[in-house]
Nucleic acid binder design. Structure first.
Lengths: 333, 333
DNA sequence: TTGTAAGCGTTATCAT
DNA sequence: ATGATAACGCTTACAA
């Protein structure tokens, strides 16, 4: 089949160890032999077998990313960031799109625990599962970086957006424009983006001396349908909000649909700011003001954190926070 | 570190071969022993090491997908299709996003030629490279499925959209609505979607007895900028088109921007049909009529073709064509 | 039906 | 500086 080290060694007439030394850039090889070996490698088109390397060194040169939904443009950017960083370091990337399926997620973690990858970037659907997942992977000695997921007391590197800051700014913006009844379509609190984005909303109101009206807060499961219902509920209130913060780009699709059905003008009759920065947000009329996350940079940092962890397994966990960007368009004022 | 077959064998007091037999569901194992072994596997939390398996059997249980741009929603669906099919078959998926970088693409192919994966799904940026890429992978005995890429005389399975049919229908639609000057923003002809979509356009005109006006045909490199310039050129003609077919969703962004800048009303002053079915196409005003490709199914079929090929390496190459769907919205009439 | 031993292509430990 | 040789964890002839 493929040419092996043995073939190269045979051609040059040296031991396979010498070939290995050349391939791995070991110092103790005479310039003469090195040249000959490199020559043979070129003529035979030899490439080291990564599988054998991985088996022998007990260290795979590939990472894995587990994400809930690859159709979501946030994750698409994250993955590109991860892949770039991995590629640069000579690592390959396994992709696991678990499609919001908890069972599938667990199976993926199980699969990965068996020594196939050097590390895992994890963005699970439910933080309550994190404990088990980390334990399983740790049993296989596989380090983890959590992306947009957190849980007290877990020993893992994390990379998370300043979610609270994002919604804080959004609310501040609404307040500055004179809005006093600000609705929020929030996510669930079993993961960080859901929790923290709502926290920022609450904090902003308090900091500006406004009372929190529970009526204006709608917790959902981060789906389009849920957002649709939540928005409809908000707009049906006897004293409806004049501005709405939607905590994900996906949910915004539901909210927009309701706004259209009711024929409300944006931003005059209803102002809008949404999380994420989907492509369509700048294409529709009016263009939507967004809280854009540094998705690409997050992916990149996640991979870098992981690669660093491989070198220094015993360092204390690192927790990185990246700031979102407020993208001011026309839907908010 | 991790528990191995040896550990399991030791615990039960049998040979490692027996454990292997149990793990691989071999028939010749007494029910008694099998139970004991399974028990030990459970208590020790043993998982077979896939790296060792791959090395020994010379057959990795993972596939690779090389795509030009993961931010493109077409590929995002393709990848989901691939991953689903791979996952179901117990395979893992390596993702290579080459970001339209030819050199990076070549390096990825080289990397993959070294026995790391069982097969590759290839969607390269330039079909003229295909020859080399296929040779390199074939040298490593790695089968290939080409996705939306073709080249005469290449021995590889292919899965391609009925591109010509898609644009044929679009043009037919324009003609039925009374349009006689139909412009086309086409792609390059160094890959199938570019070539074939233009072919369908030409064929439709001929079949309906219309002369082809070269002025109305703009070949581009499939980028937003190129589409922008091409569209501007078209609209500046002394006798400009009343309808435009844009051969990719990405390029449509450029076309739309020009249409907006000129303040042309759609579809009254300019009718539009575009390839792909990006999320925003149904969100903007007016919603855009599209030629949607069965991206998910293509990914799925590609993976299935590949897995089949692994079982029957010597079968003649299969060439699958999938039909696009005409999604009728408001931009075309 | 089960065990022994060889080997997949590397790297690593010794000698030399 | 280079070469034998064992080992990584598994599968698989072949033997028992």
């Amino acid at each position: 089949m493929s040419t092996t080290m043995r073939d190269v060694a045979a051609l040059v007439g040296v031991s396979i160890k010498t070939v290995s030394n050349v391939v791995n850039q070991r110092p103790y090889v005479s310039a003469d032999l090195r040249a000959k070996v490199l020559d043979a490698i070129a003529t035979l088109d030899y490439r080291p077998n990564r599988t054998a390397q991985a088996l022998r060194t007990r260290r795979a040169r590939s990472l894995a990313a587990i994400v809930p939904d690859i159709q979501n443009s946030f994750f698409t950017s994250v993955i590109r960031g991860i892949e770039d960083a991995a590629y640069q370091a000579g690592y390959m990337l396994f992709l696991f799109d678990v499609e919001d399926d908890l069972e599938r997620e667990e199976r993926c973690v199980d699969i990965l625990s068996a020594d196939t990858v050097a590390g895992v970037i994890l963005c699970t659907s439910d933080e309550s599962r994190l404990e088990r997942q980390i334990n399983v992977l740790r049993a296989g000695n596989i380090p983890i970086v959590l992306l947009e997921r957190l849980r007290e007391g877990l020993q893992a590197d994390t990379i998370v957006v300043e979610n609270a800051q994002g919604s804080y700014e959004a609310v501040q913006h609404f307040l500055a424009a004179g809005h006093r009844r600000i609705g929020v379509v929030a996510g669930p609190d079993y993961y960080a983006p859901g929790r923290e984005r709502l926290e920022g909303y609450l904090r902003a109101l308090r900091d500006h001396g406004l009372a929190v009206d529970e009526e204006l807060i709608r917790r959902t499961d981060f789906t389009v349908n849920a957002a649709q219902m939540a928005t409809a509920d908000l707009l049906q209130l006897s004293s409806p909000p004049t501005a709405i913060l939607v905590c994900s780009g996906l949910m915004a699709l539901g909210t927009l649909q309701v706004i259209r059905e009711r024929g409300l003008r944006m931003p005059e009759e209803i102002a809008l700011i949404i999380f994420d920065d989907p492509e369509w947000s700048k294409m529709i009329d009016p263009p939507i003001t967004t809280i854009a996350q540094p998705a690409y940079a997050m992916g990149q940092s996640a991979a870098e954190l992981l690669l660093q962890r491989l070198l220094q397994p015993d360092n204390p966990p690192q927790h990185v926070r990246l700031a979102p960007t407020f993208v001011h368009r026309k839907s908010c004022c």
